[in-house]
Amino acid sequence: MSDSWPRRRLLAILRGASEPLDAQELARVTGQHVTTVRFHLDVLTRESLVRQFQQPPRGRGRPRIGYTAVQRSVGYQELAQVLADQLGSDPRKRSDAAVAAGRAWGAKMESADQPVETLDDAKDLTITLASELGFAPERDPSTETDEQVMIRLTACPLRELARTHSEVVCGVHLGLMREALDRNGAREHVSVRLHPFVEPELCVARLELTKARAAETVSAVEEAAPENGEPRLAPAGSRMAPQLRSAEPQLRGSADPQLRNADAHLG
């Protein structure tokens, strides 16, 4: 088709049209004979560049055949592949650049104001963000403790590219999550990691209380524990995280789930 000026012209006309056009209309616009136009339209149809539609007849007679251009979608997968390939060969530098890009993206996104003061707040914000981006997140209550939460990401808009460039694709998504959490107040007390492909179609986001916040909440619980039968109140100004429901369970270290592919660069 590329070496045929008449077909290129027909295709351009159809791409600019607001509705399907038939061969007679195209012949009138281009000044070509209607038989010649039909020939070129048949070629464009075989090349999947135009599509035929049956239209009502004008007055009596057979239905008309209208034509419209096939709109080509932008190859975002290919574009992402090209961009990923430009980040160099060092996995560490590629990961760092991707995380920085994700943070820059997150800084420009309009996000709901969801202040993060507890681990539950961080979980809710992350699930909201992941849902908006098409990750189909799911909670995993069996792995939740007072100090960490796992969120299962069952879909990914760029999963196929992530299979070969996980440090780039997952790095961008990790940076985006970190920026969203930090912007809402989690910088000092909640960290997030991303574990790609723990199963062939599953990634996991892990949220954890930082050591400083974990120690603070444990101290608050100890201050509030009864002594000699006398209830004791936590000192004024101390903050007890609501997810700490008892003094003993949260002090035990929880074993990580079987994350078979916890990428060190993303962790």
Rank of each mutant, 00 (worst) to 15 (best):
E132D: 01
E201V: 06
R239P: 05
R239A: 02
E222C: 14
V192D: 06
D146H: 12
C170P: 14
G237R: 03
L181A: 00
P231W: 05
P200R: 14
E144V: 08
R183A: 09
A205D: 03
V172G: 09
L161Q: 10
G237P: 04
L194E: 05
P141C: 03
A136P: 04
R183N: 07
E248K: 09
E144D: 09
T164P: 01
E230V: 15
L153M: 12
L174G: 12
S238H: 14
S238C: 00
R206C: 08
P242V: 01
L181N: 06
R252E: 03
M240N: 08
V218Q: 05
L194W: 07
G175K: 04
L207A: 13
T145R: 04
Q250K: 01
T143I: 10
P157K: 07
L133E: 14
N184Y: 07
R245A: 08
P231Y: 04
E222M: 10
C156F: 01
P231L: 10
L174D: 07
S219K: 14
A236D: 06
L202F: 15
A220F: 00
T143L: 08
L207R: 10
H173S: 13
P231E: 08
G185F: 02
R239Y: 06
P249S: 02
T210A: 00
S238F: 01
R252C: 03
D140R: 09
G237I: 03
R159F: 15
C203S: 15
L158H: 11
A241I: 00
R206Q: 11
E223C: 00
R245H: 15
V192P: 02
S246C: 15
T164L: 14
V172K: 09
P242Q: 03
S191K: 09
F135I: 12
L158I: 03
H173Q: 08
S238V: 02
P235V: 05
L133T: 03
P141Q: 02
S254C: 03
A241S: 11
T145K: 02
K211S: 02
S254H: 09
G171F: 07
R139S: 15
R152M: 15
L233S: 13
E144Q: 08
R193K: 10
T143N: 08
E144A: 07
R245I: 08
Q243T: 00
S246D: 15
P137M: 13
E222N: 10
L176D: 01
H189C: 11
H195I: 13
S131A: 04
C203N: 14
L176Q: 06
G171W: 09
T154D: 07
Q243M: 08
E144C: 03
A241F: 11
A186H: 05
A220H: 01
T164I: 11
